[in-house]
């Protein structure tokens, strides 16, 4: 693992809580690691396991999925559905050798700008320590056919 390894992290977040929390981190001029790319979705209920697989295919070393705290979902219970799916999907990935340490889940409300900034830093650190997800990258390399629409 080289010293200068900078992990690539892709985040899927809901617009009402975590995305707004990330905006708040910005308006509060907090500083955090530049490794995360955010994809905005209406609700955690919209976040499909497929997105996680595609992010891995794009060479992500870590994934973050985040939304409103239980009880706060703008759509009343999209996040409860999401929580169940994640629970199952996470176990499934872990069992097939895609370590849970690389796939992180969190609740971040629109008010938690600080939590957002801290989380991005700690997730980035954690993934940096884990190093690049070489095993998965090898698979990608073997895959000649690029994904098409």
């Amino acid at each position: 693992m080289s010293e200068s390894f900078e992990p690539k992290i892709i985040a899927f977040v809901c617009t009402y809580c975590t995305y707004t929390g990330a905006d708040l981190a910005g308006t509060s001029r907090l500083k955090y690691a530049p490794n995360v790319r955010i994809i905005r979705l209406p609700c955690t209920g919209r976040i499909s396991p497929m997105f996680i697989l595609k992010a891995l295919q794009q060479g992500a070393d870590g994934i973050l999925v985040s939304g409103c705290h239980p009880g706060d979902c703008h759509f009343t219970h999209g996040n409860y559905h999401a929580r169940r799916r994640w629970m199952v999907f996470r176990t499934l990935l872990d069992f097939t050798g895609i370590p849970s340490e690389r796939i992180k889940f969190s609740w971040i409300s629109a008010a938690e700008g600080h939590k957002f900034a801290e989380l991005i830093n700690s997730v980035t650190d954690d993934i940096r320590k884990l190093g690049p997800f070489d095993q998965y990258k090898n698979l990608i390399r073997e895959t000649e056919a690029p994904a098409t629409l």
Partner: peptide
Amino acid sequence: LASFKKDDSETFIL
């Protein structure tokens, strides 16, 4: 996966 309980486990969520 089409249902849920409000107190489903979430120990893995940060």
